[in-house]
């Protein structure tokens, strides 16, 4: 197994872990963290494929994509955290569960 394949595989594992945590954990902050772990997994995969066919220098396009992706993930996380704070201020709770249906 070459080095980039190892990193790709690690990225996939992170992604799967994040997805699993997103589904099972009820706490909002943990859900946001899980999404960030998923994002980290995809980004690791993305950056690892930059080395796939290039012997001397890595492919620059995945790096450009990665930078864009990080910015997007950061802004989405900022929004999610702001929303989570507001939910805590208004309802006093920070978990999502089945009772939170529309009245």
């Amino acid at each position: 197994m070459s080095q980039y394949q190892f990193y790709s595989l690690a990225g996939m594992v992170l992604f799967a872990l994040g997805l699993h945590a997103l589904v099972i954990l009820p706490h909002i902050l943990r859900k946001i963290l899980s999404i960030n772990i998923m994002a980290g997994g995809v980004f690791l995969f993305l950056i690892s494929i930059a080395a796939r066919n290039f012997e001397d220098f890595p492919d620059p396009v995945p790096q450009a994509m990665l930078l864009t992706g990080v910015v997007v993930a950061l802004s989405a996380t900022a929004f999610a955290v702001a929303l989570a704070r507001r939910i805590y201020t208004v309802t006093g709770r920070s978990e999502l569960d089945e009772e939170d249906r529309v009245p």
């Binding site: 859900k31 999404i35 999502l96």
Partner: peptide, 19 residues
């Protein structure tokens, strides 16, 4: 209250979907 919680669910689903 209702829109915040519904919005949070929507946001998590949308972010996961995009990833």
């Amino acid at each position: 209250r209702a829109v915040l919680v519904a919005g949070m669910r929507y946001l998590l689903a949308a972010m996961a979907g995009s990833l």
